[in-house]
Simulated scan of single mutants.
Amino acid sequence: MLASAIRRDISFGVLRPDQKLKIDALRQAYGGSTHSMRETLRMLTAEGMVEATSQRGFRVTSASEEDRQDILLMRLEVERLGLARSMERGGVAWEGRLVAAQHALSRADAAVQADPGDLTALQWDEACRSFAGTLVEACASPRLVDVAARFFNQSRRFRLARLREGGIDFAARGARRDALCRAVLDRDVPRALTLQAEDIRADMGA
Rank of each mutant, 00 (worst) to 15 (best):
A179I: 04
A179S: 10
R159E: 00
H35G: 13
V99P: 09
A192S: 13
R173K: 01
T194D: 12
V184S: 08
G90M: 05
M43F: 11
V189T: 15
A197N: 09
M37Q: 06
D9R: 00
I6L: 06
M1Y: 03
L144Y: 09
A3W: 00
D188C: 14
M37L: 12
R157C: 00
L15G: 02
R38V: 11
G167L: 08
Q19M: 06
S130P: 09
E165A: 12
R56D: 01
P17L: 00
R164W: 01
F58R: 02
T120Q: 00
V189D: 04
E79T: 10
L26P: 02
R85L: 13
A52W: 06
F131K: 11
M49D: 11
Q113C: 12
A132P: 03
E137D: 14
Q55M: 08
V147W: 07
A3R: 02
S54I: 04
A197E: 13
A101N: 07
L195W: 10
R89I: 15
V147C: 05
R97A: 07
K20Y: 01
D118F: 11
G174D: 05
G91K: 00
A197C: 03
R75T: 09
E79D: 12
R156G: 04
C139W: 01
A127T: 11
R156T: 06
R85H: 05
A46T: 14
M1E: 09
R97I: 02
R201H: 10
S86V: 13
E47M: 09
V99C: 10
S64Q: 04
Q69E: 09
A183V: 00
T61F: 10
L72T: 10
L180M: 08
L83H: 02
V189H: 07
M87G: 14
R80Y: 00
D188E: 11
A202L: 02
M37N: 06
L2K: 02
C181E: 14
L81E: 04
M49I: 07
D109Y: 05
